[in-house]
Amino acid sequence: MNIWLGTIPAFLLATIGAVVLMRRKRRSGLTLLVVINAAIMAGALALVAAALTAGPATAATVTAATATAATTTGSGGSALIAAAIAVAGSSLGASFAVAYTGSAALAAMSERPEIFGRAMVVVGLAEGIAIYGLIIAIILIGQA
């Protein structure tokens, strides 16, 4: 199980607690939430400062296998990030395209029901944008 899925109940409880606090005590609740957010931000900044000022990690022994593995994985990470960007961008573009073409298709079909087939073709073409991004991602992952 992913560790981030385990934090969902904590975030849900924090949100519910903040809503209840704001409904019961407006002014003091807002002050308390600002103080809590400032403390979390200070902790995050301290963590970032510690990560940025830390020295490089060194291994005690470096074998030939780990040295070659370290040198060959440099461009693979960039290809994976590029694949993620391709999928995310194409999915967002497809979602906007389907939203606009789908609403226009439904409006047109409410006036003329016989154009159902042509309207669904346009919506299907909009969904194809996401498939193109997925194909590009597969190509990029294959080259990684």
Rank of each mutant, 00 (worst) to 15 (best):
82 A>E: 04
40 I>L: 11
70 A>R: 09
113 P>T: 05
73 T>E: 08
27 R>M: 09
12 L>T: 15
33 L>K: 05
124 G>K: 01
82 A>D: 06
67 A>F: 08
17 G>K: 08
58 T>N: 13
43 G>S: 12
3 I>L: 14
55 G>R: 10
133 G>F: 00
93 G>M: 06
132 Y>V: 13
56 P>N: 13
44 A>Q: 05
142 G>Q: 08
107 A>V: 12
123 V>K: 03
36 I>E: 02
119 A>E: 08
104 A>D: 12
21 L>T: 15
105 A>H: 02
127 E>P: 08
17 G>E: 07
124 G>R: 03
59 A>Q: 13
73 T>C: 02
14 A>T: 15
77 G>E: 02
137 A>C: 08
64 A>L: 10
130 A>C: 07
56 P>V: 09
141 I>K: 02
44 A>V: 15
5 L>R: 13
133 G>W: 01
97 A>G: 11
75 S>N: 12
16 I>R: 01
116 F>D: 11
36 I>W: 00
127 E>K: 05
32 L>C: 07
25 K>S: 11
31 T>C: 03
109 M>T: 14
138 I>E: 04
10 A>F: 14
4 W>A: 15
70 A>M: 09
7 T>F: 07
68 T>C: 01
116 F>G: 14
9 P>K: 07
68 T>E: 11
28 S>K: 00
36 I>C: 05
126 A>C: 13
99 A>S: 15
19 V>S: 04
117 G>F: 03
20 V>M: 09
61 T>Y: 06
133 G>A: 08
119 A>I: 05
5 L>E: 15
